[in-house]
Design a protein around this nucleic acid. Sequence first.
DNA 1: TGTTGACTTAGAGTTAACTTTAAGTGTTAA
DNA 2: TTAACACTTAAAGTTAACTCTAAGTCAACA
Lengths: 146, 146
Amino acid sequence: MTYTIGEFAKKCGLTPHTLRFYEKEGLLPFVHRSASGIRFFSEPDIEWLVIINCLKNTGMSIKEIKVFIDWCMQGDTTIEKRYHFFIEHRKKVEKQMKELRKYLKKIDYKIWYYQTALEAGTLSIHQTQKCIKEEKRQLLKDAHGN
Amino acid sequence: MTYTIGEFAKKCGLTPHTLRFYEKEGLLPFVHRSASGIRFFSEPDIEWLVIINCLKNTGMSIKEIKVFIDWCMQGDTTIEKRYHFFIEHRKKVEKQMKELRKYLKKIDYKIWYYQTALEAGTLSIHQTQKCIKEEKRQLLKDAHGN
DNA sequence: TGTTGACTTAGAGTTAACTTTAAGTGTTAA
DNA sequence: TTAACACTTAAAGTTAACTCTAAGTCAACA
């Protein structure tokens, strides 16, 4: 079972334009062509797009992804490089998650802040003693999580 | 204690250029100017930049952030809007985290995949029965987490 | 047999968020 | 007081990752 660029694009949620762009950037060296030059994609190519998507959506640039793809094309000699590539990338993703958790706390604080103000009908509630106390408690709770 | 644009930029890890750009985009309507037109920033302005940074680094565009800032300038009448703004944004950040967790699993699988190949000295280890079994186990483990 | 639609290429345009440049004014330290 | 530096504005340039256009080829259907 093979796919034309249009069919394959649908299968991985991209446009034919984007796939051609990726190929031009060297991300799809595994794509085959018919005698008349038409690209055809096969079932295992989907896995390539899955990993490209994974790397792309975790903040990796096309150039960096290309480095990995190139290593893949070189076979067993690059196993160690590829291993370290993922070890390093994992660290970056962990860092992103840590950041997101931090921001989520900030957002939760804001939700509490506006919910309290909403109930009171005014933001000035946050100048009262009771609220300042609670606010400190919240902030301390946040600090603990870091 | 007030700061010039250069001092303030350092304090929040931005350049004066970027701060001027943000002001032009309407993100800093709270910034004051001296009689001669020079901007000066004060201590509480840092909290504004903290929240701008939080929203920016969780994928919000400058235009969307501006909507929030404008609401802030309007006082108590926009409390509910701001509350819902953060409720909605929280959902988006949760979604990002869920995605990241999914990608992290993919990366962990790849680490296992290359580590196994590294120990064997060849990628062809992944065509052996023993390895295929383990691979299935890993994939099932991943599936459970989703 | 013509037209619709998918494909090809090269290259130009878009968007967001800066980032730099140019040309000039104002402030501070030796 | 003069050099260095921080500031001003308007506008152009940069970068990544698409996204689209133009001009053309090719295959299938009414």
